[in-house]
Nucleic acid binder design. Structure first.
Lengths: 280, 280
DNA sequence: GTCAATATGGAATGTTCATTCCAGATACGG
DNA sequence: CCGTATCTGGAATGAACATTCCATATTGAC
């Protein structure tokens, strides 16, 4: 008789290790759980870093890394690191292969895969496009404008609504007062009626433009309330009544657009405003 | 006058090094030529190995490796090795290069510009990451699962809510029956109670996980309703109760995450489901 | 063929790193 | 509330490592 304790075999590849970690994550002590999460979330760091550098990133002691490795049957941290490196070697080749396959014969793949790749590619193009299209000076002006306002009214309907809803969430976290317009019922106009010239509005609308959003933005503008807007064309009704406006053209896949670029823009605007306020 | 000898600049990336090696390989001594050939033929070995192990593989002395590196302007072997490691990292996300450019001249720009660039870069990285992380087969299974369900329940709170809200909008346009859970009031659980095993759920939750979402997903699962989920870590409570789950790690900028990659994924899923239904 | 300049191999060196060890902290059971 | 077992942080340790140095070998010029 050797041991009464059950000894699971040492994982031989990354997937086995991953499985083992997920299986035993419940019974792991606090710091080891922390390492487990870090390892699965930042595998590249584990592959390249030294025990010391990884320990700093994961906010643990180097010795904890060693203990973690030993928990899973390795001699020490180095043994575990080998798996992460092996994974990286394999992935580079297989990932390249995959890309090549995708580009060549999209027909042979499952339709869902084609659609997925299409949206990923569209997201890439959209983000590229917005990076090129947004004028830094205009962006800075918009940030200044919104940062000094009292309450920010977020106007968005339908397809744009998810963006403003995320901004509202983020503004909440950042302690920036805002009012989400377009939620429900018919109280939108009542809410907007309370806006003063100390406030500002951020409106989002994409073609086909919700006439309501445009009307609300115009109304705000006519009352001397600055309007910043995000839209997809210079011909948008929003453009003409806005103090500052930005164009984001989401690349489409099969006629459908994701909001990847708009989301990036929205977050950049949100965080910039909060940052500007914080600095005074 | 310092040196009459021409001093080519130290290569800053792998391609520059490769070019430099090819240019100067004629004037290199025997052993250094040997190292040069080995380096270009086995770049992965250089990235991961130690000077000693590489020396054995290349049939040279460790000191030769150091001399080789110094010939190309590096302090020592380690400096050269960094380039080989960086190359492997960039393979996975080739956007790193452009990121570095942005970061370099970010200091002189307005803060809002820096933030904007940061989010654009983060969006790019996120989209790259999700392209690599999503397994086409798993995606196809998820699509099949959701496409054959009667009603799709979309579970998401807080930060994830904008995504599900966009999916609900798109599903509506595509005539796919769905129920958005997490809107308001306390009617969520009542809505979920109506779900049968003919239905399915799609849950989204990112760290810090809303306990409500996890509980609801678990509840659905326990009643035999298939759950597909989108989350940001294998440790997510969603992962363990899902039939299929996907990991999307949104790169962050200054601690804030946009939803660019998640949005692309959501739209791909939505459209794929609609397409699968349409085809029968 | 001889000398000088360069290249090379291999041992010596100093540094960095993973690992171990121990003392204190924390959680757990009685 | 106390005692025990486990966990954690941090310093000590020893091994592995890149690098340097020097003696020898090789090359090329005269």
């Amino acid at each position: 008789m050797s041991d009464t304790v059950e000894k699971p075999p040492v994982p031989q590849d990354f997937d086995a290790l991953r499985t083992a970690i997920l299986e035993r994550k419940g019974e792991l002590p606090k710091r080891l759980t922390q390492v487990a999460a870090y390892a699965l979330d930042h595998p590249d760091e584990i592959a390249f870093g030294t025990a010391a550098s990884i320990a700093i990133s994961a906010a643990v002691q180097p010795s904890t890394l060693v203990r973690f490795a030993q928990h899973f049957g390795f001699d020490g941290f180095s043994g575990l690191q080998l798996l992460f490196r092996a994974r990286l070697r394999e992935r580079t080749s297989s990932y390249e292969e995959r890309l090549r396959t995708l580009e060549q014969d999209g027909a042979a793949l499952a339709e869902s895969t084609t659609i997925f790749n299409g949206f990923v590619a569209a997201a890439h193009r959209s983000v590229d496009a917005i990076a090129a299209a947004v004028d830094p000076d205009a962006f800075e002006r918009a940030v200044t404008l919104l940062a000094k306002s009292d309450t920010i009214y977020l106007i968005a309907k339908r397809r744009s609504y998810p963006i403003s809803s995320y901004m509202a969430y983020a503004f909440g976290k950042l302690k920036v007062r805002c009012q989400l317009v377009g939620t429900s019922a018919g109280i939108d106009d009542d809410m907007l009626a309370m806006a003063t010239s100390k406030d500002a509005a951020f409106a989002i609308s994409f073609s086909p433009y919700a006439s309501e959003s445009a009307a609300q933005a115009r109304m705000m503008a006519s009352r001397g309330i600055p309007v910043v807007s995000l839209t997809d064309s210079a011909f948008s009704p929003l453009a003409e009544c806005s103090t500052e406006w930005f164009e984001v053209v989401e690349a489409d896949h099969a006629g459908f657009r994701s909001l990847s670029a708009s989301m990036a823009f929205a977050m950049a605007l949100t965080v910039s405003i909060a940052e500007k306020r914080r600095r005074g």
